[in-house]
Structures are given as structure tokens and as C-alpha cells.
């Protein structure tokens, strides 16, 4: 469906919208997903787009690394 899009950071807009340039608002064709649609099949298909869309570049590498280690080991090895 055709919608107007403003610059946002939350949500499930896939693929990554590149058309903004210096504009705050543009018109795009999108597919809206529900939370349920962000399923394993979707992740398998679009893993790269999801990976590319992270935002760590806004912070310094060192800042991230210690926080990352703490979070990961707690989540991965926790219940």
C-alpha cells in the first residue's frame, strides 16, 4: 500500500527505506507487518536487511562492546 513516511526509528518497515535524502517526509509503497508476521520464516528470508538496519554506528565502538558482552551472556546463557 502507498503511504506517506516520516523518518522513524521504531517499527517494522522492511525493506530499509532509502529515499529520504534530506527530506523529512516521502511517499513509499510498503508492506506492514504484524508482530506475529515477524516470524522465523521472515527472519530467515530477510536476515541481511535486519542486520544492516542496526544503529550501533551512532555510538563509539568501545561503548558498545562492554554493554554487549554483559547483555549477550546474560541472555544467551540465562533461562
Amino acid at each position: 500500500m502507498r503511504v506517506k513516511a516520516k523518518r522513524v526509528k521504531e517499527g517494522f518497515l522492511i525493506p530499509l527505506i532509502k529515499g529520504f535524502e534530506d527530506k523529512e517526509e516521502i511517499e513509499v509503497e510498503i508492506e506492514l507487518l504484524s508482530k506475529e508476521q515477524l516470524d522465523d520464516e521472515f527472519v530467515d528470508k530477510h536476515w541481511k536487511a535486519l542486520a544492516l538496519d542496526t544503529v550501533s554506528g551512532e555510538r563509539e565502538d568501545d561503548e558498545i562492546i562492554y554493554e554487549a558482552a554483559w547483555r549477550f551472556y546474560n541472555e544467551k546463557h540465562g533461562n
Binding site: D53, R71, K76
Partner: peptide, 18 residues
Amino acid sequence: FIKYHDLSVRYPNLTKNQ
């Protein structure tokens, strides 16, 4: 672990396995 963390920040609703 770094990329896992980045995904956690960007997509809070993704599961651990995803």
C-alpha cells in the same frame, strides 16, 4: 555478542533465537 546486542537494541521484539 556485539551484533546480538545491536539487534537487541534495534529490534526489542525479536526472540533470542531469531
